[in-house]
């Protein structure tokens, strides 16, 4: 009998995410059951304001869950700590630019979870940093200040930082939003490869529906407080994208993974 390799597990039970305003809980998405137990590339889709980022930020422990629990390897995750930062890395859209760190220093911050109190980089740390910069193709930028980069370049640096953190789970909030088509495709390809080669769980929110349907394993669609979680193959099979995103003007052509105008007579 072949023994299944043991991967990291990410689960949620009755998770409900949203905001708390003056003591009142305002749920945005209810009843989220996540059960991932093997390397998976998940794309969370949804219209603006549907609650994609809220879910992602809750999984990342950046905001409290309204109810329910998040489990990693069967253990409940409560609040962020250094141990938790070794399991989950996060890429957010917004980043402070009010500092003078260069690209190398920024990517190196990914290793700070593992370094000693004075933040000394070991040979292995340096290797991981170089590797992360190579993967994202930002080696030539290493001495540039992060604040002076273009939005797209900065986004790559942030992804590189998360790759350097080398966590089994990586969460990305719209990681390609500032990238042009060409670079967005490259980035999605990189995510796919990262999941396959390093056995990671990668969850991202995106508006790049076409790239998601081509490269992800699972698609979660958030719409009006509900979440639909299906394997990408099934989503395509059932024309689910059309159910959620079509309008009178456009529909999703699953053959070429693109929205197109409905031709009127």
């Amino acid at each position: 009998m072949i023994k299944e390799p043991t991967y990291i597990q990410l689960q949620t039970k009755n998770l409900s995410v949203g905001y708390t305003t003056s003591g009142k809980k305002i749920p945005i998405v209810d009843n989220i059951h996540i059960d991932i137990h093997k390397p998976t590339f998940v794309a969370i889709l949804g219209k603006n304001g549907a609650g994609k980022s809220t879910l992602l930020r809750t999984l990342a422990q950046l905001q409290p869950a309204l109810s329910g629990t998040i489990h990693i390897n069967q253990k409940i995750v409560k609040n962020s700590s250094n141990d938790e930062a070794k399991l989950i890395s996060v890429v957010l859209t917004e980043v402070e630019k009010g500092h003078q760190f260069n690209v190398y220093e920024m990517v190196a911050f990914g290793r700070s979870v593992y370094t000693n109190w004075i933040d000394q980089l070991t040979v292995q740390d340096k290797m991981m940093i170089e590797n992360a910069m190579k993967w994202t193709g930002i080696q030539h930028l290493r001495h540039q200040k992060v604040a002076e980069l273009s939005d797209g370049q900065r986004q790559k640096v942030l992804v590189a930082r998360a790759l350097a953190q080398d966590t089994p789970i990586i969460l990305l909030d719209e990681p390609t939003v500032h990238l042009d088509v060409h670079h967005a495709m490259e980035m999605f390809h990189l995510f796919r490869k990262w999941v396959d080669e390093h056995q990671k769980i990668l969850i991202l929110t995106t508006h790049e529906i076409g790239l998601a349907t081509q490269l992800s394993d699972e698609i979660w669609i958030i719409d009006q407080g509900k979440i639909l979680q299906e394997p990408t193959v099934k989503i395509l099979e059932n024309n689910t994208i059309d159910q959620f995103f079509n309008t009178e003007l456009i529909h999703f052509n699953k053959m070429i993974h693109t929205f197109e105008y409905i031709k009127t007579k």
Partner: peptide
């Protein structure tokens, strides 16, 4: 890098 980023690390 911002409080969110720091927290996530």
């Amino acid at each position: 890098l911002g409080e969110n980023m720091a927290q996530s690390m």
